[in-house]
Design a protein around this nucleic acid. Sequence first.
DNA 1: GTACGTGCAAAGGTTTTGCATTACA
DNA 2: TGTAATGCAAAACCTTTGCACGTAC
Lengths: 142, 142
Amino acid sequence: MNRMLKDIGLKATPQRMAILDFLKDNTSHPSAEEIYEAVAKRFPSISVATVYNTLAALKDKGSLLELTIDPAKKRYDPDTRPHHHLICLGCKRVSDIVYDFVLDLPGQVAGGYQITGNHVEFYGICPACGQNKDQKKTGQEG
Amino acid sequence: MNRMLKDIGLKATPQRMAILDFLKDNTSHPSAEEIYEAVAKRFPSISVATVYNTLAALKDKGSLLELTIDPAKKRYDPDTRPHHHLICLGCKRVSDIVYDFVLDLPGQVAGGYQITGNHVEFYGICPACGQNKDQKKTGQEG
DNA sequence: GTACGTGCAAAGGTTTTGCATTACA
DNA sequence: TGTAATGCAAAACCTTTGCACGTAC
């Protein structure tokens, strides 16, 4: 943690190390508040401002992805490798999809844009919600 | 407009017709505030609450998509047919991509989810921003 | 020692809500 | 006429910001 922070040009404070520690190998795509709650358990004096500051700094350095997949709030993903997401329309759980898709746009369709990346969101019902038959909407932009 | 609203089970009020009129064939993916500003020009007495109520009602009826592609606010898309989006990392403009991709997930990758839909976001630089050389970040979740 | 980071509280932006009034059907 | 919709204002969220104090390097 200590080294990682210095490597990307940030000072290694205990608060930042606690945040990184919580995010390491975390695949739950937590929100800022969830990160704050979790870190505050072991570090009660930490403030939300510090959490937001740290998340912004990590994102700036390319060490954290800010996911825009939840209409209510931003979610964060410490896995910065290109990958996609699967969102349960029932419980809103977000799972990682590590699978390569061919997503080439014909020049005509790209409309003169210089394409630099992509991200696929899949919508569905997770096994747990499928059993509960709590299914609601389906389709795009759940 | 009048008929369309009744068809989906909503009362045809002038406010709603003005909102629908603005959204019809609109491909700018406007935010609630942009819709409010536009409609208020011709209908000064309309309130933001009515705009939000109407957008929620239309979304509920499946006649409007709520896009979660802008971290700052929700954007709306009157085109409810499945399609994808191309986002300019420079000016944040959102363009429609009408192109069919094969996005089948092997059962193993889908992890027991029942997949019901998908949505692809492409990131890039639009022609206008490319000329201005204002390019900033690239990649996922711009 | 100095620049950077922290914590608190206040403020900003978006969206929701309560409630009295209005108007569609 | 009855139910649904409107409009206003207040409030609820999430996130950002200003500033004095603290601390990593």
